[in-house]
Design a protein around this nucleic acid. Structure first.
Lengths: 161, 161
DNA sequence: AAATTAAAGGTCAATAAAAGTCAACAACGG
DNA sequence: CCGTTGTTGACTTTTATTGACCTTTAATTT
């Protein structure tokens, strides 16, 4: 039944907690949450993986064992969907290394990225390029596709964050 | 009460002592500390092992017998190269997702990374994991190797940058 | 000086209390 | 009907706490 979609319900519950808490950080007990929603504990992991991933601007920290916890951190609320759409448009289905680099320089100039953030992104792109070329023998075009996908994930996480 | 988190309380106490002391060094008596917090002495060893280990940026020295003591030293890096070496030591040849996440939390706590930088790094790691798992069918161990390599590249670039 | 004793701190293993992983199965949307 | 998304439970790993036993050092006694 789509009316009782557990994942959605739990997602909204957590989102609500995050909204209520001004600093964008909340702490959960996995077991308690599972009990509250009458589900198995690993369901909580599923919700976190699928809805509160870093690609969406969230960080999740946790500790096992006695006094364990799960902490969800929303990096910021000033996410304008405009910006995200803009980024998404900027990055086509495929993007070359040159285009990617130009885009990053541009974003840094516009203060969307710090120099350090640009650096990390470039290292991540280069690493994937390297692996695709030497380890997996991916075609140039497919590498452009993969580059676009990675870049989109990295940038949207940052724009959201 | 068993509901309170002893380890955390003791950790914060020691951290406070270190903050108050300008030279980043303090001396403890294990027995006194155990008495103050109403726990068994070996609990102190646990706190030191798990919270003031080198990977958290501390050194612990001690002496047994009469006039014994435990000294905690907060270490600082003179140069970038020292920092790079330290980071390199933290990342083994292979690293699991869990270990990687812990390391990143730790580095953020130590102000080596901003939250946004941690976010980008987590996205990059997740992306590679996802590709390795679903696109290229890489074995778990090999994914741990690749994760370590990527993490090393990303972190050293940042520390140097 | 050597032996003893007291006073530190260290190690390890058992136990309990979390959270994580994975794969099979179910339900849903196109 | 097929691929994706959600649900479940069995099994694993990590963390915290406690206590019994071990080692090292300094002071005291013989």
């Amino acid at each position: 039944m789509s009316s009782s979609n557990l994942t959605k319900v739990i997602e909204q519950y957590i989102a609500q907690l995050l909204e209520d808490n001004e600093d964008g950080t909340i702490s959960l007990r996995r077991k308690d949450l599972a009990e509250r929603f009458g589900c198995v504990p690993s369901q909580i992991n599923y919700v976190l993986r699928s809805r509160f991933a870093p690609e969406h601007g969230f960080l999740v920290e946790s500790q096992r064992g006695g006094h364990g916890y799960i902490r969800v951190i929303q990096l910021s609320f000033k996410s304008c969907d405009e910006k995200v759409d803009h980024i998404a448009e900027l990055i086509d289905n495929a993007i070359t290394e040159q285009e990617a680099r130009k885009l990053l320089v541009n974003l840094q100039n516009r203060k969307v990225l710090t120099p350090r953030e640009r650096l990390v992104i470039e290292v991540a792109l280069r690493n994937q390029e390297e692996n695709g070329r030497t380890l997996f023998d991916i075609s140039p075009y497919r590498r452009d596709l993969m580059r676009a996908e990675l870049l989109r994930k990295l940038l949207t996480s940052l724009v959201l964050g």
